[in-house]
Design a protein around this nucleic acid. Structure first.
Lengths: 137, 137
DNA sequence: TGACATCTACTACAAATGTCGTTTTATTTC
DNA sequence: GAAATAAAACGACATTTGTAGTAGATGTCA
């Protein structure tokens, strides 16, 4: 589980581009996949990729023409997990205050919650009926 | 809504100390309220407070002796909101992927969700019965 | 009022981040 | 195999963040 490095916002954006390209791409592809308005210079992307390489977030696989092809080594999933964990840390490690916030600001609706409940129920077969919910044996 | 500035991790920690002290305190108090293991030098706290001042997150109110008393201008609430919004941005603005993650990693349990549901129901009297819940607009 | 304790103001500095430009090297094409 | 092209390597610079030292102002106490 070693590498799940801390990535900056910008690094995340580059990773996101890479993920969207299927997890494997050349620098030029990545650069050109970014929205024109905020498209950094080729060498900027190059620098970021180099840093991502140092951090173990991507690696170069083969060469096509004279360009290296890079592959994502961290998944969107794990990058997201990392972000979330860091946020939770700031909230004292618990997800509840975070939830409250989302509910209070309308970012989470009742039906979102119901969906989640189903999912949680699947993952935790422990689910008890209703009144029966006390102490375990 | 002007001031809800981006704060760094460290700045957040200092703000947290300040909030815990009731939102108003002198630098010395803040510094000494931090856990010994990771207590920065007095002047370090001073520097951070100065930066927080520039960012409009705190202001100096009065003087007691020769020390300034600082007051938090951003609430824990709004600082948290800011953090969450930024995280959500990275998730494409929607809270659901975030939720899924929390559920899947066990950070959120069924009963957490049930709690939240109650809260949501209170906030949104719109609550629909069950089957009636689909598409609109 | 002078010695001492505290603060504030100012300065400094390294590491991380954002953002390239230039030089070198490899590839392709006559 | 030399010119044109594209990419890689390397280096650079401003800003932000983490971290603190020092000098000068201010308050305190005998």
């Amino acid at each position: 589980m070693a590498s799940n490095p801390r990535l900056t916002k910008f690094e995340l954006e580059i990773m996101d581009a890479l993920w969207k390209l299927g997890g494997t791409a050349a620098i030029r592809e990545i650069q050109e996949s970014l929205p024109e308005e905020k498209r950094p210079a080729y060498t900027t992307v190059q620098t970021i990729i180099a840093r991502l390489e140092e951090k173990g977030a991507v690696e170069r696989t083969k060469k096509i023409g004279n360009a290296f092809i890079f592959k994502a080594l961290v998944s969107r999933q794990s990058a997201h997990r990392r972000l979330i964990d860091e946020l939770l840390d700031l909230f004292g490690g618990s997800a509840q205050p975070l939830m409250s916030h989302l509910v209070e600001t309308g970012k989470l609706t009742l039906s979102d919650l119901r969906e989640m409940e189903k999912r949680a129920a699947e993952l935790a077969p422990e689910t008890v009926t209703d009144e029966n919910t006390e102490s375990e044996g």
